[in-house]
């Protein structure tokens, strides 16, 4: 088991290197720093001097991969790749366009993101699993049919609609909670209720349908028939036998996103004015702040890979066939 986790961790290294190389290629090879400078400066102010100055301020005036002028190891380290990409491995993300340290900014914004995402995640999982279990329990009845119809309709509605509609109705018409913003400490709950509720509702449709399919697949299995042949009530069959087994495929999709909860929800945070990583990313994209986007790509990949490893671990907890091998 331990060897397995160590192996997975080792396997993560080449993946991260791949991610790093890919982002490097995307940000520095597809377009040269000169292109970016021209774009950032705007057409009117483009002069060779302005471009040079722009590049120098951001450290983009070095060679990409190999600095033939630098002495010794500097040939490798005194390059854009080393400065901007390789150093991300040690948590050095450089500075944003506004001159702030990105790493510091990220640290400060993780908590607000988590404050929205964690309750959203837990509540959403709880609601959808219960709903899906109920649908599977009443399978092939009118309740199941209309439940599925409701799910399909709900998943056909744009997530933007849930947000805009929620804000309009709850905050503007009913004036129950503030429309957007974020507070310090416990006061934050007033700002969190709406984004969490909207997040849960917008996720119900697709997740419920997926889980219902998983449950129905398990319902047809032989061990369920055995459980019924024992004379167990249907509720026991579902909660004790079916749920435990169905949890294994459900875990695949669920555990992997847990680390990524830190990344925040892009749209939600932006709409509700929550100062998390999601809105940070969006602002960076809108302002074309390449350094921030690059950093978020890397962090996102790291969190995803951690999620993959967690998935493996959670499998082995849920499934004795893996745990005991």
């Amino acid at each position: 088991m331990l060897a397995y986790i160590v192996r997975r961790l080792l396997y993560a290294i080449p993946i991260l290197i791949g991610v790093n190389l890919l982002t490097f290629a995307l940000f520095f090879v597809v377009n040269t720093p000169d292109d970016m400078a021209r774009m950032q400066l705007g057409v009117k102010r483009v002069t060779p001097e302005a471009i040079q100055k722009w590049k120098a301020e951001r450290g983009y005036d070095k060679p990409l991969l190999w600095n033939s002028q630098a002495p010794g190891a500097g040939a490798l380290t005194d390059t854009i790749f080393f400065d901007k990409s390789a150093r991300m491995f040690v948590g050095d993300f450089g500075r944003a366009e506004d001159g702030r340290d990105i790493a510091l900014e990220i640290k400060g914004r993780m908590l607000p993101s988590l404050a929205v995402q964690l309750p959203n995640f837990i509540l959403g999982l709880f609601v959808t699993i219960i709903f899906a279990l109920t649908l599977a329990f009443f399978r092939a009845t009118a309740f199941d049919f209309w439940g599925v119809v409701l799910c399909v309709v709900m998943m056909s509605i744009s997530s933007l609609f849930y947000i805009i509609g929620g804000q309009y109705l709850v905050s503007k018409v009913w004036r129950l909670v503030p429309i957007s913003g974020f507070g310090e400490g416990l006061d934050a709950w007033r700002f969190l209720v709406l984004p969490v509720v909207v997040g849960v509702i917008s996720g119900i449709g697709s997740s419920t349908r997926l889980y219902r399919t998983i449950f129905l697949e398990e319902v047809g299995k032989d061990y369920i028939r055995t459980a019924r042949a024992k004379g167990l009530p249907e509720t026991v069959v579902f909660l004790r036998h079916l749920l435990r087994n169905a949890l294994i495929p459900i875990l695949t999709g669920v555990v992997v996103v847990i680390p990524s909860l830190f990344m925040g929800a892009l749209i939600t945070e932006s709409f509700f004015g929550i100062p998390g990583l999601g809105s940070y990313t969006i602002d960076a994209i809108k302002a074309q702040d390449f350094a921030v986007v690059r950093s978020m790509v890397f962090i996102g990949a790291v969190l995803y890979i951690i999620g993959l490893i967690l998935t493996d671990i959670s499998y082995s907890i849920a499934d004795p066939r893996i745990r005991l091998k």
Binding site: K221, D222, Y223, R225, T226, A227, R228, A229, K230, G231, L232, P233, R240, H241, R244, N245, I248, A318, D319, P320, R321
Partner: peptide
């Protein structure tokens, strides 16, 4: 509900595929 107290108590059943008829995650 009454049938359930018959199943497993008054009459029991074993199946063809022992490999799939037991719940894999319970001891």
């Amino acid at each position: 509900a009454d049938m359930r107290s018959v199943r497993g108590a008054r009459m029991a059943m074993i199946f063809q595929e022992p490999a799939t008829s037991l719940n894999p995650v319970l001891t």
